[in-house]
Design a protein around this nucleic acid. Sequence first.
DNA 1: CCGGGTCCGGGACAAATGTCACGGGTGGCC
DNA 2: GGCCACCCGTGACATTTGTCCCGGACCCGG
Lengths: 201, 201
Amino acid sequence: MIKLLLAEDQGMMRGALALLLGLEEDIEIVAQVGDGDEIVPKALETKPDVALLDIELPGRSGLDAAADLRARVPGCQVLILTTFGRPGYLRRAMEAGASGFLVKDGPVEDLAAAIRRVLAGERVIDPALAAAALSAGPNPLTQRERDVLAAAVDGATVADIAAKVHLSPATVRNYLSAAIGKTQTRNRMEAVRAARQNGWL
Amino acid sequence: MIKLLLAEDQGMMRGALALLLGLEEDIEIVAQVGDGDEIVPKALETKPDVALLDIELPGRSGLDAAADLRARVPGCQVLILTTFGRPGYLRRAMEAGASGFLVKDGPVEDLAAAIRRVLAGERVIDPALAAAALSAGPNPLTQRERDVLAAAVDGATVADIAAKVHLSPATVRNYLSAAIGKTQTRNRMEAVRAARQNGWL
DNA sequence: CCGGGTCCGGGACAAATGTCACGGGTGGCC
DNA sequence: GGCCACCCGTGACATTTGTCCCGGACCCGG
């Protein structure tokens, strides 16, 4: 019996997946969470064999939690399930020690199969996505550049960002300019978009 | 037997819902589509009793399709199922003749129940959401203001927007200024965000 | 017919943004 | 030690953006 932890914020999706996977003979869902912060505690409590994690969660990111999970719950394989097949996400997932990476397109039938393959020690990655991740190259943005860009997502002004990141306005503009240059875009908004698209956020 | 049409772009979600609803004794899924443009043709072909529509779809919006569906497939009730409980979406759904509006949070169990209630002629709407929609008031944006704002979503410059909408740059700036004023925001980005948030896009 | 609304444009101005050049500081690596 | 990358900041500059004013056009309801 494969013990599974399911982390997904959309209630309907979570419920549907839980019901579906519960129908499989060899799978038992030992925990369902809708918040990233609950992943590690629940895993420590229930010792699942596989953790199926969404990336975009309230609280902690699934990618974040994945690294922790690998370190603190050694027997647990991590399978990332996400809406967005962004190159940077895949890269980060691999660096965090994930064994598989699925996108929410594609048929449900793959899911149970992927879980079994992951448990058998295989890696499950969409080949096209892997190619995209490799061709895209690594994240060119500095930590600070990411911080500043992340603080600019919802239309904040330079002053707002400066306050949020505790920097001088002039410095913020320099980082923004650098980020714009590295993403080969023309302004903040495009830079944010490009960084998001690649999973660099 | 309730004949159901299911429109949802995420393959995994669509598959999961189809399987789940297929388990219900009195529900039969007669069509599944992942593209907004296929909704009406498939409905004309299969004459479903209820159409379960996502809003954000490739091709045509589910809200768009809903209005058409009501006009061209009279016996078919429309139930909107969306990730975002935005006031403007609910309002537009009602104006399009939808009988129900569900968000993808909340338990799966509600879904089958909602389908049956809709078919019985009831309206299914989350009360909190209905209150929000009423308190938010109607869309204050002009058609042109919406156009310009929509063309500004991905960081386009004034010149880009002007080219896309076939207007003078000066006019574009005027519309943007108006939109910023009406949304009570400080710049384009915040205005876009606010308009999206409310479903005014 | 006379408002009032929206549509479309222009001009002028202040503020915000993006760029560049420049400084100094730290820490890692050869 | 020297090199390099990143960090943090300043000042100056051109461009873009946001605002406010002003026209003229159209259509609709009173």
